[in-house]
Design a protein around this nucleic acid. Structure first.
Lengths: 149, 149
DNA sequence: TCCTATTATATAGGAACCTATATAATTAAA
DNA sequence: TTTAATTATATAGGTTCCTATATAATAGGA
């Protein structure tokens, strides 16, 4: 089937994912900047929101990024006063990361921005459509995750 | 509505976009590596596939990335022998970029990989579901693009 | 116990993205 | 036509992501 135009990005979902992801990052970062947060940090914030202390390894797993990515991000977050590290009494290789008090205080504002972003992103979609979208995305993600080779 | 759990990423589409986009990039790059291509270069390859010569500006617009992003990518692509620059006879500030012969020869193989990726990504979805997905993505992208502030 | 394998972080190196700014060429305006 | 505004690239600086590899601490086995 030569006429299906594999080169036309508008016809395939693939194209949209990167553009939506980049757009969300840009808009989200702009909205979070005054709080000192960034979209990439959201998984860390949510994992530690109740005062939990987690290792770098656990945070990387939760955020679904590689360990060196999380290491760098935590360095920047520590540098910026968002998180603190305490030595893990049970393992001298590891430290336990937690949010600083200042960060904990800013969380509700971050949460509000997040809620607004979620609603802006789906503006004009009905609840049913959003549900359909999420369930399709879930299936695509599963395919993508098992696609690696 | 306190119980809607804004912090639960699985409930909102936002979470999925970054994971799907990163997964597609990783899998795509792995599959394209032997050809010497990368997923981020696909817009350039498709824009120039028929031997067209475009300026950096035009390529950036087509790929929907900022000009400095395209500048760096074209540098790498030139370094790797994928594209070549010719001075624009009508504007001394600008050059016209085109694919090298070696790249043109590898395009059909790249296209096959692309087709395979598109089909892997939507495995298990019916044609109707894919169409629904694309149309929802299109609407979300529109929202995201007008979200900036 | 002592040596080896595993595990938690750290570091090196690189791609792809961004914003802000500099430079040179072109266009428009006075 | 001479200056001022605009435009095309380039460069600087920074974040987020990746793979590959080094280092130190813990765990397991001989």
């Amino acid at each position: 089937m030569e006429n299906s135009d594999d080169w036309d990005p508008l016809r395939h979902p693939g194209h949209y994912f990167s553009r939506i992801a980049r757009g969300l990052t840009r808009a989200g970062d702009a909205r979070l900047r005054d709080l000192g947060f960034a979209t990439a940090q959201l998984p860390v914030l949510t994992a530690l929101k109740d005062g939990a202390e987690l290792s770098q390894k656990e945070l990387a797993k939760w955020a679904k990024v590689e360990q060196p990515t999380m290491a760098q991000m935590l360095s920047r977050m520590e540098r910026d006063g968002l998180v603190q590290r305490a030595p893990d009494p049970e393992d001298k290789r590891s430290s336990l990361i937690s949010l600083t008090d200042a960060t904990l205080e800013k969380l509700p504002a971050g949460r509000a921005i997040l809620r607004q972003g979620n609603s802006d992103m789906t503006k004009g979609l009905t609840e049913d459509e959003i549900e359909t979208l999420v369930s399709l995305l879930r299936r695509v993600l599963e395919n993508v995750d098992s696609m690696e080779p």
